[in-house]
Amino acid sequence: MQSDSIKRAIPWMLSLAVLALLPVTGLLRGSFLSHVLVMILLNASMAQAWNIIGGYAGQVSFGHSVFFGIGAYGAAYAVTNLKMTPYPGALAGAVLAAVLAVIIGYPTFKLKGHYFAIATFAIVEVFHRLFMIWEDVGGAVGLDYPILKDGWRNFSWSRSKVGYFYGALILFGIIFSLVRALEKARFGYYLKAIREGQETAESLGVDARRYKLAAMALSAAMAAMCGAFFAQYNYRVDPSMVLSLDMSMRFVLITILGGIGTLWGPLLGAAILIPLQEYTRAYLAKLGPGVDLVIFGLIIILVMQFQPKGIMGMIDAARKRRRKLAAAGNEHEGGRQ
């Protein structure tokens, strides 16, 4: 059992190590490519954080920008107003987000379907407007970072993006390892059982509300860490940037495009969508503003028409087709089960 899980971890550790060696190869010298890579890792981590509650526990929340925003403001507040390193701010943000997730989750988890979705929209709007008028965190203007010395102490690099790449990789490694462990843990199975049928799970003795709240808190804390990274990378935060419905939708869309409730879905979604978005933004700029988002919207519409289970759904379908073909082939040769 023990050696099994170690064996299972080897390819995962190896791939993280390979990713960690990328900057050494000199492939990342172009700053645009490193920017795209950092964004892929960040967005995959965000989507994975959302996947815990949205995918595994089946509660499709459109409120994750609130947790993301709290993390972002936590780090930014520590740096700009308290003149500290961002780490205590990020940590405080993650804890606050987890507490808030429980406070939000407790009453809203009894809402069904669209009612839950709309309630989470409303929560985003409330926080958006509160941060807009909260002068201590800069109101509508937000918080602007001062010029900081490069390095891990400030989690800030101005000359090259390699530092941010490693930061994003650590974030990605932590969140994906966590969900990887979750997939095989009792907790993960409980969540899936609740998603498939809450009454059935409860009748078997699973305390559905407790596990959903725990999943929400974990998901919120991870989303807040992503927010803190975003603030450090972006060097400023304001309510419309982090605490918006568009930001909330980003969590949901990437996960769903990649494959909701699967371990690799969030990475696949980010690896396809982010380069597409960044490159169309860069290359279609001459067509005026918004063209990249029009294309983004069209892709979402198209994917939803044909494969709402996302890329993992396509892979699954292809696998099944191949298995069916193989089975048909066997039957043809007279092999029967």
């Binding site: 499709v60 029009v294 979402i300």
Partner: peptide, 25 residues
Amino acid sequence: TLGKAMAPLLATFGLSMVIKNFAMN
């Protein structure tokens, strides 16, 4: 997308992005 959980909501969200950014452009 009818009958596929969140698919109609997300598809119409995609449409809202298309319309809004088209108008912006």
